[in-house]
Design a protein around this nucleic acid. Structure first.
Lengths: 110, 110
DNA sequence: CCGTATCCGCTGCGATACTG
DNA sequence: CAGTATCGCAGCGGATACGG
Protein backbone atom coordinates (compact mmCIF):
# COMPACT_ATOMS: atom_id res chain seq x y z
CA UNK A 1 0.00 0.00 0.00
CA UNK A 2 1.45 3.37 0.93
CA UNK A 3 5.12 3.49 0.16
CA UNK A 4 6.43 3.89 3.66
CA UNK A 5 9.66 5.43 4.83
CA UNK A 6 10.68 2.18 6.43
CA UNK A 7 14.32 1.58 5.61
CA UNK A 8 15.03 -2.13 5.17
CA UNK A 9 14.11 -5.64 6.22
CA UNK A 10 12.93 -4.67 9.67
CA UNK A 11 9.19 -4.53 10.10
CA UNK A 12 7.52 -3.78 13.37
CA UNK A 13 5.37 -6.60 14.63
CA UNK A 14 2.11 -5.46 16.14
CA UNK A 15 2.02 -6.33 19.81
CA UNK A 16 -1.74 -6.08 19.97
CA UNK A 17 -2.18 -8.59 17.19
CA UNK A 18 0.30 -10.91 18.79
CA UNK A 19 -1.48 -10.79 22.10
CA UNK A 20 -4.85 -11.38 20.47
CA UNK A 21 -3.39 -14.44 18.81
CA UNK A 22 -1.72 -15.68 21.95
CA UNK A 23 -4.96 -15.50 23.88
CA UNK A 24 -6.49 -17.98 21.46
CA UNK A 25 -3.56 -20.33 21.55
CA UNK A 26 -2.10 -19.99 25.01
CA UNK A 27 -2.55 -22.28 27.91
CA UNK A 28 -1.75 -25.90 28.16
CA UNK A 29 -4.88 -27.14 26.39
CA UNK A 30 -6.55 -24.41 24.35
CA UNK A 31 -4.90 -25.12 21.01
CA UNK A 32 -5.25 -28.83 21.51
CA UNK A 33 -8.97 -28.50 22.18
CA UNK A 34 -9.53 -26.48 19.03
CA UNK A 35 -7.62 -28.94 16.88
CA UNK A 36 -9.47 -31.90 18.35
CA UNK A 37 -12.75 -30.24 17.50
CA UNK A 38 -11.64 -29.33 14.00
CA UNK A 39 -14.45 -29.27 11.49
CA UNK A 40 -16.60 -31.60 13.52
CA UNK A 41 -19.45 -30.93 15.87
CA UNK A 42 -18.88 -32.69 19.16
CA UNK A 43 -20.74 -33.08 22.41
CA UNK A 44 -19.14 -32.23 25.69
CA UNK A 45 -18.69 -35.89 26.55
CA UNK A 46 -17.07 -36.62 23.21
CA UNK A 47 -14.61 -33.81 23.70
CA UNK A 48 -13.90 -35.07 27.18
CA UNK A 49 -13.14 -38.57 25.88
CA UNK A 50 -10.73 -37.25 23.30
CA UNK A 51 -8.94 -35.01 25.76
CA UNK A 52 -7.51 -37.40 28.32
CA UNK A 53 -5.65 -35.51 31.00
CA UNK A 54 -7.84 -32.46 30.95
CA UNK A 55 -9.85 -32.15 34.13
CA UNK A 56 -13.54 -31.32 34.03
CA UNK A 57 -13.06 -27.91 35.52
CA UNK A 58 -10.33 -26.96 33.07
CA UNK A 59 -12.21 -28.27 30.06
CA UNK A 60 -15.37 -26.44 31.03
CA UNK A 61 -13.60 -23.16 31.65
CA UNK A 62 -11.52 -23.41 28.49
CA UNK A 63 -14.60 -24.13 26.42
CA UNK A 64 -16.34 -21.15 27.93
CA UNK A 65 -13.36 -18.96 27.20
CA UNK A 66 -13.13 -20.18 23.60
CA UNK A 67 -16.80 -19.50 23.08
CA UNK A 68 -16.27 -16.03 24.50
CA UNK A 69 -13.39 -15.46 22.12
CA UNK A 70 -15.58 -16.39 19.18
CA UNK A 71 -13.58 -19.46 18.30
CA UNK A 72 -16.40 -21.92 18.80
CA UNK A 73 -20.07 -21.83 19.51
CA UNK A 74 -22.11 -23.73 22.03
CA UNK A 75 -25.56 -25.14 21.42
CA UNK A 76 -27.53 -26.50 24.34
CA UNK A 77 -30.59 -28.68 23.82
CA UNK A 78 -33.28 -28.75 26.47
CA UNK A 79 -33.58 -32.51 26.57
CA UNK A 80 -33.31 -35.21 29.12
CA UNK A 81 -30.54 -36.15 29.35
CA UNK A 82 -29.07 -32.76 28.46
CA UNK A 83 -27.07 -32.40 25.29
CA UNK A 84 -24.57 -29.68 24.48
CA UNK A 85 -22.74 -29.43 21.19
CA UNK A 86 -19.66 -27.47 20.28
CA UNK A 87 -18.76 -26.35 16.77
CA UNK A 88 -16.11 -24.01 15.42
CA UNK A 89 -17.39 -20.65 14.28
CA UNK A 90 -16.44 -19.28 10.91
CA UNK A 91 -13.58 -17.43 12.53
CA UNK A 92 -12.51 -20.63 14.15
CA UNK A 93 -12.50 -22.49 10.84
CA UNK A 94 -10.63 -19.59 9.30
CA UNK A 95 -7.99 -19.96 11.97
CA UNK A 96 -7.64 -23.73 11.61
CA UNK A 97 -4.96 -23.78 8.90
CA UNK A 98 -2.74 -21.49 10.92
CA UNK A 99 -3.35 -23.46 14.08
CA UNK A 100 -2.32 -26.61 12.27
CA UNK A 101 0.85 -24.90 11.16
CA UNK A 102 1.70 -24.26 14.78
CA UNK A 103 1.96 -28.00 15.10
CA UNK A 104 4.52 -27.97 12.30
CA UNK A 105 6.44 -25.53 14.45
CA UNK A 106 6.69 -28.29 17.01
CA UNK A 107 8.40 -30.46 14.44
CA UNK A 108 11.12 -27.88 14.00
CA UNK A 109 11.86 -27.77 17.72
CA UNK A 110 11.21 -31.38 18.75
CA UNK B 1 0.37 -41.12 0.67
CA UNK B 2 -0.66 -44.42 2.27
CA UNK B 3 -4.39 -44.89 2.07
CA UNK B 4 -5.12 -45.07 5.78
CA UNK B 5 -8.01 -46.72 7.51
CA UNK B 6 -9.00 -43.42 9.07
CA UNK B 7 -12.69 -42.94 8.56
CA UNK B 8 -13.37 -39.27 7.86
CA UNK B 9 -12.23 -35.73 8.46
CA UNK B 10 -10.99 -36.28 11.99
CA UNK B 11 -7.22 -36.36 12.45
CA UNK B 12 -5.51 -36.66 15.78
CA UNK B 13 -3.34 -33.70 16.65
CA UNK B 14 -0.06 -34.61 18.30
CA UNK B 15 0.02 -33.22 21.80
CA UNK B 16 3.79 -33.44 22.03
CA UNK B 17 4.25 -31.38 18.90
CA UNK B 18 1.77 -28.84 20.14
CA UNK B 19 3.54 -28.48 23.43
CA UNK B 20 6.93 -28.13 21.75
CA UNK B 21 5.47 -25.34 19.66
CA UNK B 22 3.80 -23.65 22.59
CA UNK B 23 7.04 -23.54 24.53
CA UNK B 24 8.59 -21.45 21.78
CA UNK B 25 5.65 -19.10 21.52
CA UNK B 26 4.20 -18.93 25.00
CA UNK B 27 4.68 -16.28 27.56
CA UNK B 28 3.84 -12.67 27.29
CA UNK B 29 6.90 -11.68 25.28
CA UNK B 30 8.61 -14.67 23.65
CA UNK B 31 6.94 -14.47 20.25
CA UNK B 32 7.27 -10.72 20.16
CA UNK B 33 10.99 -10.92 20.88
CA UNK B 34 11.57 -13.39 18.07
CA UNK B 35 9.64 -11.30 15.56
CA UNK B 36 11.48 -8.16 16.56
CA UNK B 37 14.77 -9.90 15.98
CA UNK B 38 13.67 -11.33 12.65
CA UNK B 39 16.49 -11.75 10.19
CA UNK B 40 18.63 -9.14 11.84
CA UNK B 41 21.46 -9.42 14.27
CA UNK B 42 20.88 -7.17 17.24
CA UNK B 43 22.71 -6.25 20.39
CA UNK B 44 21.10 -6.61 23.76
CA UNK B 45 20.64 -2.87 24.08
CA UNK B 46 19.01 -2.66 20.65
CA UNK B 47 16.58 -5.38 21.56
CA UNK B 48 15.87 -3.62 24.82
CA UNK B 49 15.06 -0.36 23.01
CA UNK B 50 12.66 -2.07 20.66
CA UNK B 51 10.90 -3.92 23.43
CA UNK B 52 9.45 -1.20 25.62
CA UNK B 53 7.61 -2.66 28.56
CA UNK B 54 9.85 -5.68 28.98
CA UNK B 55 11.86 -5.48 32.15
CA UNK B 56 15.57 -6.27 32.13
CA UNK B 57 15.13 -9.44 34.13
CA UNK B 58 12.40 -10.76 31.90
CA UNK B 59 14.23 -9.90 28.71
CA UNK B 60 17.43 -11.55 29.89
CA UNK B 61 15.69 -14.70 31.04
CA UNK B 62 13.58 -14.95 27.91
CA UNK B 63 16.65 -14.55 25.73
CA UNK B 64 18.40 -17.24 27.68
CA UNK B 65 15.41 -19.54 27.30
CA UNK B 66 15.19 -18.89 23.57
CA UNK B 67 18.87 -19.63 23.15
CA UNK B 68 18.36 -22.85 25.10
CA UNK B 69 15.48 -23.79 22.83
CA UNK B 70 17.66 -23.32 19.79
CA UNK B 71 15.67 -20.44 18.43
CA UNK B 72 18.47 -17.90 18.54
CA UNK B 73 22.14 -17.85 19.28
CA UNK B 74 24.13 -15.55 21.48
CA UNK B 75 27.58 -14.21 20.67
CA UNK B 76 29.51 -12.39 23.36
CA UNK B 77 32.55 -10.27 22.50
CA UNK B 78 35.22 -9.76 25.14
CA UNK B 79 35.47 -6.03 24.68
CA UNK B 80 35.16 -3.00 26.80
CA UNK B 81 32.37 -2.09 26.92
CA UNK B 82 30.99 -5.59 26.50
CA UNK B 83 29.00 -6.43 23.40
CA UNK B 84 26.53 -9.26 23.01
CA UNK B 85 24.73 -10.04 19.79
CA UNK B 86 21.67 -12.15 19.17
CA UNK B 87 20.80 -13.81 15.87
CA UNK B 88 18.17 -16.35 14.89
CA UNK B 89 19.48 -19.84 14.29
CA UNK B 90 18.52 -21.71 11.15
CA UNK B 91 15.68 -23.32 13.03
CA UNK B 92 14.60 -19.91 14.15
CA UNK B 93 14.58 -18.58 10.61
CA UNK B 94 12.73 -21.68 9.50
CA UNK B 95 10.09 -20.93 12.08
CA UNK B 96 9.74 -17.26 11.15
CA UNK B 97 7.07 -17.64 8.46
CA UNK B 98 4.86 -19.60 10.79
CA UNK B 99 5.44 -17.16 13.61
CA UNK B 100 4.41 -14.32 11.33
CA UNK B 101 1.24 -16.19 10.49
CA UNK B 102 0.39 -16.27 14.16
CA UNK B 103 0.13 -12.52 13.90
CA UNK B 104 -2.42 -13.00 11.14
CA UNK B 105 -4.34 -15.05 13.64
CA UNK B 106 -4.58 -11.93 15.74
CA UNK B 107 -6.28 -10.17 12.87
CA UNK B 108 -8.99 -12.79 12.80
CA UNK B 109 -9.74 -12.31 16.48
CA UNK B 110 -9.10 -8.61 16.92
C1' DC C 1 26.97 -2.56 28.67
C1' DC C 2 24.91 -6.62 29.93
C1' DG C 3 23.23 -8.77 32.70
C1' DT C 4 22.08 -11.44 37.98
C1' DA C 5 19.85 -11.44 42.81
C1' DT C 6 15.80 -10.93 45.62
C1' DC C 7 11.40 -10.66 46.68
C1' DC C 8 6.55 -11.19 45.68
C1' DG C 9 1.67 -10.99 43.83
C1' DC C 10 -1.31 -13.07 40.53
C1' DT C 11 -3.44 -16.50 37.89
C1' DG C 12 -3.23 -20.92 35.34
C1' DC C 13 -3.87 -25.36 36.19
C1' DG C 14 -5.20 -29.36 38.83
C1' DA C 15 -7.86 -32.77 42.32
C1' DT C 16 -11.91 -33.68 44.23
C1' DA C 17 -16.66 -33.33 45.46
C1' DC C 18 -21.14 -31.89 44.39
C1' DT C 19 -25.63 -30.34 41.38
C1' DG C 20 -29.72 -29.19 37.74
C1' DC D 1 -25.01 -35.45 30.87
C1' DA D 2 -22.79 -31.35 31.55
C1' DG D 3 -21.21 -28.89 34.13
C1' DT D 4 -20.12 -25.60 39.06
C1' DA D 5 -17.76 -25.12 43.87
C1' DT D 6 -13.84 -25.15 46.61
C1' DC D 7 -9.27 -25.53 47.75
C1' DG D 8 -4.39 -25.38 46.80
C1' DC D 9 0.05 -24.59 44.83
C1' DA D 10 3.80 -23.66 41.47
C1' DG D 11 5.73 -20.67 38.34
C1' DC D 12 5.39 -16.61 35.29
C1' DG D 13 6.14 -12.10 35.10
C1' DG D 14 7.30 -7.61 37.35
C1' DA D 15 10.03 -3.88 40.43
C1' DT D 16 14.05 -2.80 42.16
C1' DA D 17 18.81 -3.08 43.41
C1' DC D 18 23.32 -4.71 42.59
C1' DG D 19 27.64 -6.83 39.95
C1' DG D 20 31.65 -8.03 36.23
Amino acid sequence: MTNSTRNELSFEPDLLLINAALVVVSGKWRLYIILILGEQTLRYSQLSERLPGVSEKVLASELKALVGLGVMKREAFAEIPPRVEYTLTERGRLALPILRQIQQLGQIFN
